[in-house]
Nucleic acid binder design. Structure first.
Length: 259
DNA sequence: ATGGCTAGGCTCCCTAGA
């Protein structure tokens, strides 16, 4: 089973590129971020006609997450628990009813720039809430994963020019520390478990020829619970998608699981 | 002093992204 995460940077803008990639790679489950659409405007029938079940958690203009799945989705939760006043659509979770079911959490973690400031405080608070949610899920000792745009560069080798990011909310020590706390609860960074080579990125800025110079960062991650990691058979980044027509600034990152 | 572009709002410039 192949499970992917893809920040599409707008469903309307990716109305051709997303189906093109789905046709080519045929992932079983996809967590989408930055759909930038309300639920009613999401072109769900396009994906239903391709054999996917569609669950969205959108909002007007910005943010917005969704899950596409070839298997039924059950027990859908929209919004990250822990703060009823949070109106940003950045979290959706559901149980994928594959032969061996797995809980999938799709997330779009706040960017946090400029730091310091209220946006950075929101990012850190959001990460603390996610840590609490993950701790709850771990207590269940069931397979689950958290897939999405974390807006976190975990290590120097995850950026082409790490020294340019030292003051950035994606790479500040507090950000990386919060990410480590999450991982150290007992999750596995699936891509790094399978591939230790540097220079492998999931985002390239539209500006300044970042793609042409391979000036990228690795910020899209799939973190696996122990019971999910037991089944991990592969992981990769669909880098070529960035060179396609009208690309997102992110590319899909995927894993394969046993059965 | 500086984000070299892209996307969406309800626009003819603004916010936001990373």
């Amino acid at each position: 089973m192949r499970i992917a995460t893809f920040n599409i940077n707008g469903i309307k803008a990716r109305i051709e590129a997303l189906p093109r990639w789905l046709d080519a790679e045929k992932p079983d489950v996809v967590c989408l971020q930055e759909i930038k659409s309300v639920d009613e405007a999401f072109p769900r029938t396009l994906f239903e006609d391709m054999g996917y079940v569609v669950e969205t958690h959108g909002q007007k203009g910005f943010n917005g997450v969704a899950i596409l799945s070839r298997f039924p989705l059950e027990d859908v939760v929209r919004g990250l628990p822990g703060d009823d006043s949070d109106e940003q659509a950045r979290w959706i979770e559901a149980t994928v009813m594959a032969p061996r079911p797995i809980r999938v959490c799709g997330l779009y973690l706040p960017n946090g720039n400029p730091a310091p400031g209220p946006k950075y405080e929101y990012k850190l608070a959001w990460m603390a809430r996610m840590e609490a949610r993950v701790a709850d899920l771990l207590a269940g000792e069931e397979p689950f994963l958290c897939a999405g745009d974390y807006n976190v560069i975990p290590q120097r080798e995850d950026a082409a020019k790490p020294d340019l990011w030292t003051e950035d909310a994606l790479f500040l020590p507090q950000t990386r520390s919060a990410f480590r706390r999450l991982v150290n609860l007992g999750l596995t960074d699936a891509f790094r478990a399978r591939n230790q080579a540097p220079g492998q990125y999931s985002f390239w800025d539209y500006q300044a020829g970042a793609w042409e110079r391979n000036n990228g960062i690795r910020i899209d991650h799939l973190l696996l619970s122990p019971q999910a990691a037991d089944r991990l058979t592969g992981a990769g980044i669909d880098k070529a998608v960035r060179a396609g027509d009208k690309p997102s600034d992110h590319v899909p990152v995927w894993i394969t699981l046993d059965a």
